[in-house]
Write a protein that binds this DNA or RNA. Sequence first.
RNA 1: GCCGCCGUAGCUCAGGGGUAGAGCGCACCCUUGGUAAGGGUGAGGCCGUGAGUUCAAUUCUCACCGGCGGCACCA
Length: 640
Amino acid sequence: MSTVAITLPDGSVRQFNGPITGAELAADIGPGLATAALAIKIDDELIDLSRSIDCDSTVEIITRKSDDALELIRHDAAHVMAEAVQELYPGTQVTIGPAIEHGFYYDFARDEAFTPDDLEKIEAKMHEIVKRDDAFVREEWDREEAAKHFKDIGEKYKAELIEGFPADEPISIYRQGDWKDLCRGPHMPSTGHVGKGFKLQKLAGAYWRGDSDNEMLQRVYGTAWRDEKELKAHLHMLEEAEKRDHRRLGREMDLFHFQEEAIGSVFWHPKGWTLFQSLIDYMRDRQTDAGYVEINTPDIMDRGLWEKSGHWEKFSENMFTTEAKEDRVFALKPMNCPGGVQVYNQGIKSYRDLPLRMAEFGKVHRFEPSGALHGLMRVRAFTQDDAHIFCAEEQITDECRIVCQLILDIYSEFGFDDVRIKFSDRPAKRIGSDEIWDKSEAALKSAVEAAGLEYTVNPGEGAFYGPKLEFVLRDAIGRDWQCGTLQVDLNLPERLGAFYVGADGEKHHPVMLHRALFGSLERFTGILIEHYAGKLPLWMAPLQAVVATITSDADDYAYEVLDALKAAGIRAEIDIRNEKINYKVREHSHAKVPAMLVVGQREIEDRKVALRRLGGKDQEFLALDKAVARLAEDCRSPAA
RNA sequence: GCCGCCGUAGCUCAGGGGUAGAGCGCACCCUUGGUAAGGGUGAGGCCGUGAGUUCAAUUCUCACCGGCGGCACCA
């Protein structure tokens, strides 16, 4: 029998005379570890404690304190939930139930719908099962036998899963008490390890195997943690996230609203529109610096143009159409590119004109599925900070690199430093030959690599005319949002007849790079509201300062302060209401006004103001002109 | 689009077969108060829309519309 050498994370090595289980290894290291051990990890793979290690390996023993413990707890919680559901509601079929970020879910098939009350019952039953502390026992079954077993007990989804597994994959069944489930594992030693730090959260529909052609199952979501304290902390975090929901803040801060007559389209209020415009101003400055020119193209254009571009065929499901009294059919633009090409096509372009960077703050309309709509994040009409860069093939790499750099610089200016990049290649529904796709994918890939950026591949998710990079940013509370995009397009210039005259005197099609940095201004505004929890930086805050009086004796001076602020270009209002200063401070703090200038007798006498910043505990007494100068400086856009 | 839940005052929500309540906000009055809620009075609702059951529907049933949470789809 050959010996087995186990290397532990601290570098120490232990020799054994033959295969050894994770449990035995833990016991060999110490009795404390033997009871604390939940699983082992070999080469980044988690494995049951009961499974044996039969060759030299590096092994980490996973305990409740390990980062990996959460995944085990959550996965086990899913199994416990499935058992609870089948105990309470016989005849319910189980399907799949993985651990996910912050928790777990399990998809069930049952004719009757679960109700919120059922969640409580299921949760109570889960606590019982955890208390029973049944051991998780792994068994390997013969494939046919397993498939037959699940079919016999009416679990057609499990049977279907088994039939879909690769022939060489062992079929493992995990047993907990009398209940068993088809599962790849691993699991902790027993149900008791799930503990009490879990809670069922919501019911949802979910398609079997994620395919909308399949039947819908009932998904139960739960969250699970090491203990009740961690659970409580997480629930608290969720409450905080809810408070910064942009839909709620949008109403509280009087920024925008939605209504039935225009579902999925924003009604911007004066304050919201000010914020929106400050972002456009910022981007316009940045783009001018980066060598862009700005254009504007029609919102409604003839069907013929969309047929030529390929949108009619490949994108019409998402398009609004309209007609007037003549019998021509028009479409509301879902993208700005065809319009942009029309501007490019005016006059003859020379290779000396390239790269030509044409920006457009274009408002596009897309018919999104009703269930997809979500505040400002997902709407049916949105403004893109779009641009089309017309360039020669040999300029692709450079131009892409510059765009990537611009995107990352700008995101970082808003405090988004955690940016992920996805590379999306050719979709099934596309225009253009495979040769063109080979070429454009290769060009984009080499450009992103030249920019020194890491990315993951998103197969089949490209635009119908070309591959794209998607810039996903992570906000202050860890949520991901897709914003910027950069696409290489060798198709539309040809379809829409764009040319330039090369140095060789011949006509060539330019390459078109489509790019947007914020992506959708609406979405980006929503992200910023949530990212800053409504406490917007001064330069984009719709209302930057409020002058508030202590008593009405200060009214005249307050107006003087207000005029000084306005003269310095600061968006300011005055509050001379007959209310106590406490009340005014509280109200304007809730309204997230970044600066408050309080004036009373003392300030009048010295021509000063008491400057209080949002969230600040104390105030500063400053001479009026000094306070105005300082605020004006703080209100300046970083791009100005 | 699909599944589930929800729709009562500007907002947050209670109620319930006999046509309605609270807190905040709003208006007016008193109060002129130094950094997160001073007091009083009052106005405000086709109880989402339409049909059905009923002597009677905001309440029960159904349909539609919209919102929310997921799924699917995407900036």
